[in-house]
Amino acid sequence: MKKIKWGIIGLGKIAGKFAGDLQKVEEAILYGVASRNMEKAEEFKEEFHAEKAFGSYEAILKDEEVDVIYVATPHVYHAEITKDCLHHGKAVLCEKPFAMNRSQVEEMIALAKEKNIFLMEALWTKFLPHFKAVEETIKTGKYGKIKAIKADFGFKADYNPEKRLFNKDLGGGSLLDIGIYPVFLAHHFLGMPDSVEAEAIIGKTGVDERCDIRFHYNNGTSAELFSTLQEDSGTTAEIELENGKITMHSRFHEPTSAQFEIDGKMEIRNYGVTTKGYNFEAEHVTKMLQQGKKESDIMSFQDSLELISLLDSIREKIDLQY
């Protein structure tokens, strides 16, 4: 079967993690890396053993050897670059959040369908062994139904109003950068809430530096979520069920261990991941492309539409507009 040739646009920290892990995917080749700075592209190429470096995004899109592009730029550029990729016939794995709002996501998905090209949001947590193990355990029904979820993600960020995290023009703030993980987790296990509450601390640059979120469901289930750039938090996820409790240890969004409590017994399971964890989503996309698929059967378009709708709803509650 043909190996899949990957390109990367946006060569920041997360792109480096992805590129390193991509080398663990047997059917994938890191073919090209693109930056608007050729020197940066050359350095990245050498560090991660890519075949080619490109000094512009347009150049990598014109290279017919590239099968799929991993978009790892700041959020505000996701929609525009993804659509450029699709117009050039390239499949796309785009970092989360997929885009800045539902309207942009709808445009991206519509274009992918029109062009009949694969597109997926890079919600890498969904592909990690500990997350899949928790999901499968809950599906057995042994623990009963979910009663409540608590999840957080926080770290003390170095304050720089020009950099991505605090820069409103670059889609800064805790919600879209890290709050998306607790929101994704609650949505994945509980579905769309019947009502949403949210409040935030808006900093001097106009972005949320902390966001507290509550999802309520008509069946009595709830989710208590928060994200912050102001302090280190546990970054754990607790799922309370009728017959027990499951905890994803810190940091729950990346490879970690999980604790299972039922019938007065407690078991901690480790999953032996030796990479950063990005290889699991990269392997999935590689297989999807080899099979000629146009949409992921794990991270679907509907998943992305519902997730961005929740983020839009939360932003409306905290009056955060970009």
Rank of each mutant, 00 (worst) to 15 (best):
K83F: 02
A110W: 09
S227L: 00
T235M: 15
L22S: 06
S103Q: 14
W124R: 00
K265P: 10
E47Q: 15
K13D: 14
A200V: 12
M288R: 05
E209T: 09
K115M: 08
K24F: 08
E295L: 02
L229D: 00
T82Q: 02
H187D: 05
G32L: 11
V66Y: 06
M266A: 12
V66F: 03
Y143H: 07
I298C: 00
G234Y: 05
D232G: 08
M100P: 03
S313T: 12
A186N: 07
K126W: 11
V33L: 07
P193W: 01
E46D: 15
A50L: 12
A198N: 01
K163H: 11
H130Q: 07
E80S: 08
S103N: 15
T275P: 04
E43A: 15
K40Y: 12
E107H: 10
A133R: 04
Q230Y: 01
E39M: 15
G16W: 08
E64K: 15
K45G: 09
A133N: 02
Y271H: 05
H49E: 14
N116G: 15
L241V: 13
Y322Q: 00
A133L: 05
E95R: 10
H78V: 06
H249W: 09
V207Y: 03
Y77D: 02
E26V: 07
A59E: 15
D297R: 08
V92N: 05
H216T: 10
V273P: 01
T82L: 04
Q321T: 06
Y278N: 00
L225M: 03
L175Y: 01
L307E: 05
K276Q: 08
L310G: 02
L111R: 04
P182W: 12
N167F: 13
I178F: 10
P255E: 06
Y322M: 03
H188Q: 11
V76A: 05
T256G: 07
G141D: 02
K142V: 05
C211N: 07
F44T: 09
L11V: 15
K293I: 08
L93W: 00
M108T: 03
E136V: 03
A282V: 06
E114S: 13
A34P: 03
L128Y: 03
Y217Q: 08
L311I: 14
F127R: 00
A148K: 15
